[in-house]
């Protein structure tokens, strides 16, 4: 499969996923006109609060949406194929093999009735038709790869015999079992202790380096982004409000929401200064206000923000921002 040079591994164009209530009266625009791209070996962070649509976006990429949700428009180019137009059968060959996903809760992700070896070997058996014994051997290697001590005995054990950190690493092993090109991690460390989280993040980074994986981190934690990611996509109320290289965004956020979010995090070394809080609450997705959805909470909002929805402006350095102020800055910069 010869990918055209410079074409990213995954390119999402104007994707919208909506939830429609049973009566069809309430439409929730969980993902609204989202575009993003990620190349092989890159790490992309998707940051947002609960209800920002980041998890729905992840489910959309794998096409494992709940029945009420539907991809209504857009394209998802993955290795030159549009995932949106694939049939369910074709998608089954993509899931777990070419795109894998790690979920938040390691306990719920593992079946308590099967041995570790069985579960780690399962994707290999399903996708590559490998025999049980060979899959078992591969499972051993994979456990070694995720740094689980004495993998030969661990493969015969059950999930309840493992600690939380170990279970999460096993979930990671299942994720990389078929050597996927893209790994999506949805809040992979929220249930872990700090030192265990550090272990796990360094493991993910090593796996990425060894296998040339593209990694998508879905998180609400900007710290994870600062530590792990190259590219960042900030979501608010279903839309991408800002995207670009992580260090540039952290140094000079273009969107007021990103700026406020960065300022609202307590820092280890600050001297008990008051935090800059973002006032108010995120809007209700089923009845979004007219104009920019952040306008009501935005300290820099002006008339136009309440009337017109800003489009995605392309800024220099591969950045985008959905903010009227960014367009002003861009024009004055060009002039």
């Amino acid at each position: 499969m010869a990918a055209t040079p410079n074409r990213p591994l995954l390119e999402i164009d104007n994707l919208s996923t909506h939830y429609v209530s049973a009566q069809g009266t309430r439409v929730v625009r969980a993902v609204d006109d989202v575009s993003l791209r990620i190349s092989a070996g890159e790490t992309l962070g998707i940051v947002g609060e609960s209800g920002s649509g980041k998890s729905t976006l992840a489910l959309s990429i794998l096409r494992v949406l709940p029945p009420a949700a539907q991809i209504v428009s857009g394209q998802m180019w993955f290795e030159n194929e549009d995932l949106v137009r694939k049939t369910d059968t074709e998608m089954r060959h993509v899931r777990g093999k070419r795109i894998a996903m790690i979920l938040q809760d390691p306990m719920a992700s593992l079946n308590p009735l099967f041995t570790i070896g069985n579960q780690v070997g399962e994707p290999i058996r399903v996708h590559e038709g490998t025999r049980r014994a060979a899959a078992w051997r591969r499972a051993c290697d994979l456990l070694k790869a995720v740094r689980i001590p004495s993998p030969e005995t661990r493969v015969t054990q059950f999930p309840h015999e493992m600690s939380g950190g170990m279970r999460q690493r096993i979930v990671g092993a299942i994720g990389i079992a078929c050597e996927p090109r893209l790994l999506i991690a949805d809040e992979p460390t929220t249930s872990l202790d700090l030192t265990i989280q550090a272990q796990y993040l360094s493991l993910l980074r090593d796996l990425q380096r060894e296998h040339g994986l593209a990694l998508i981190f879905i998180t609400h934690n900007l710290g994870i982004v600062a530590k792990m990611c190259d590219q960042l996509v900030v979501m608010y109320a279903g839309r991408v409000v800002e995207s670009g290289p992580v260090s540039r965004i952290f140094n000079a956020p273009a969107h007021p929401y990103t700026k406020a979010l960065l300022n609202s995090i307590p820092r280890m070394t600050d001297n008990r200064n008051r935090l800059t809080a973002i006032e108010g609450q995120p809007p209700d997705l089923s009845s979004l206000p007219r104009g920019c959805s952040f306008a009501a909470r935005c300290p820099a909002a002006f008339d136009r923000c309440h009337k017109e929805t800003p489009p995605e402006f392309n800024l220099e350095g591969g950045r985008t921002a959905r903010c009227w102020l960014a367009s002003v800055a861009m024009q004055s910069g060009a002039a």
């Binding site: 989280q197 550090a198 934690n221 710290g223 600062a226 952290f250 140094n251």
Partner: peptide, 19 residues
């Protein structure tokens, strides 16, 4: 092990073994 608040913030990383 605490997460940094800025990508340029590079701390000495002490990874503890085991749990």
């Amino acid at each position: 092990a605490a997460l940094p608040s800025h990508p340029d913030e590079r701390r000495e990383e002490i990874l503890l073994a085991g749990e």
